[in-house]
Design a protein around this nucleic acid. Sequence first.
DNA 1: TTCGCCATAGAATATCTGTTCCATTTTTCT
DNA 2: AGAAAAATGGAACAGATATTCTATGGCGAA
Lengths: 278, 278
Amino acid sequence: MTDAENPRDYASLKFRIAERAGGLPRRLTQVASYALEHPDEIAFGTVASIAVAADVQPSTLVRFAQSMGYQGFSDLQDVFRSRLRDRILNYDERLEHLRQHDLNATKASVIFGGFSDAAQKSLNDLREKLDPAKLEEAVEMLAKADTIYLVGLRRSFPITSYMSYAFGKLGIRNHLIGAMGGLAQEDLSFATKKDVVLAISFTPYASETISLSQAAHARNVPIVAITDSPFSPLAPIARTWFEVTEANFEGFRSMAATLSLAMTLTVAVAERRRNPKN
Amino acid sequence: MTDAENPRDYASLKFRIAERAGGLPRRLTQVASYALEHPDEIAFGTVASIAVAADVQPSTLVRFAQSMGYQGFSDLQDVFRSRLRDRILNYDERLEHLRQHDLNATKASVIFGGFSDAAQKSLNDLREKLDPAKLEEAVEMLAKADTIYLVGLRRSFPITSYMSYAFGKLGIRNHLIGAMGGLAQEDLSFATKKDVVLAISFTPYASETISLSQAAHARNVPIVAITDSPFSPLAPIARTWFEVTEANFEGFRSMAATLSLAMTLTVAVAERRRNPKN
DNA sequence: TTCGCCATAGAATATCTGTTCCATTTTTCT
DNA sequence: AGAAAAATGGAACAGATATTCTATGGCGAA
């Protein structure tokens, strides 16, 4: 079985694992998937600790290593360690690697680079200017809300739909407005001043998002907004609002920063509800 | 001596070593300089092997670790290892870290930092391992498709809903499956081999996404998949698939990398349709 | 010098580590 | 359904590991 030649670098090993995993016994498959998912654990852990984490017997780990063609677990572990060594050590090589990639870069991979850059830049921007006090205020409002109404259309809809999903999982009552049905108006008209509207809209502001928010505002429903400019129609009516300017590539704006903020609000609100005040 | 709180991250430790190295006994100074010069030896080696390499006694290494405020060598070694494992810091570690530098860090802003780090890391990971050839193949398939069926539920739904929106704006015929209505099966059953299914699913794979994709595959509809492991049920049925592993913070996975890839596919497909072949 | 103190070397030790082995269960094939 | 083969769990074991301990060496102060 030991093919005499077995992978000494992580990439080949990963390939071999993926290749053989199909025809492997149950427990060994379990190890295989754990290994690919937690390579760092394999690199630094001990047989015992990994066994616990992967929920198998220590002996299974050894058998797995052997079935991949190694003499024992330690042998296989070396490969996982080499991955970490190489990664940090050759930072220069990494740049070189990127530069080479650029040479035979396809159109699509250039686009990917562009979007990734835009995402990174957006994240860095928001990190610099996000005001913790405002964040705190928004979390407080949302945590106290009876029901959270999520308003976002078009480009913002993925954000609100994510929040709705996450809030749902966390057991926080929420209402996703303007999904598909179209009868958004109806839903939002139930909102009272004990609820909170979280409105998300960017240039060019979807008119429905704005009119819905304004209507809610007219009925004294407090509003938290995420938007991209002090001139946004959401700014004047929101009790607190965040300015998030996403970088764009070829006219397509990133959503990374907004999403990061959305996740933060979601989790922080859940956290606040668990231990209020503080 | 043990200052009760001693560095748990490499940067702070490095600083402390440099700071104290001056007033240290001969042998300990020797260890200090060796440690700073060969950090990965410390991370990977054993007390015995490092002792030989640094030309000191094993016990000296232990004394060094203790003089830096750690309980023993293993304790100090953990810090050197943390440098290599690019794990996202968890909430407690982050709080601890910020306590020293940034005093007015609120709970929510700590969370925001965590999500931003997770997003950045995910993007970097994907940048390194995304294969341009695969990307090209997927773009080609999608560009030739009659209709693109977008399949993604739960956590993946924001992604597909974004793509549906963007494709729509670009005039590319697409069908968003499993939105809200629930009659997803119906929609997808119209797909033929001239269409393409773009399926997105991550652990734990939403059963409906999987069964829909399998049904389409059985009818010879080509599939492009975005998933997180070679063991994903989407991998074997997809004609081409992308492995995207998002970093997570406190159990909530980032979506930044997936989104970046999704935007790339969208724009690249539109581009390809405008100038085909190329 | 002589004393006292700290640093060091190196052996001793108790713990932990990877590996092996065998009985038991599960799967496969006839 | 029964027999053979494979896979698994769990304990046993030999070797390696980090740490502790003690004797020795070096150095400054009186």
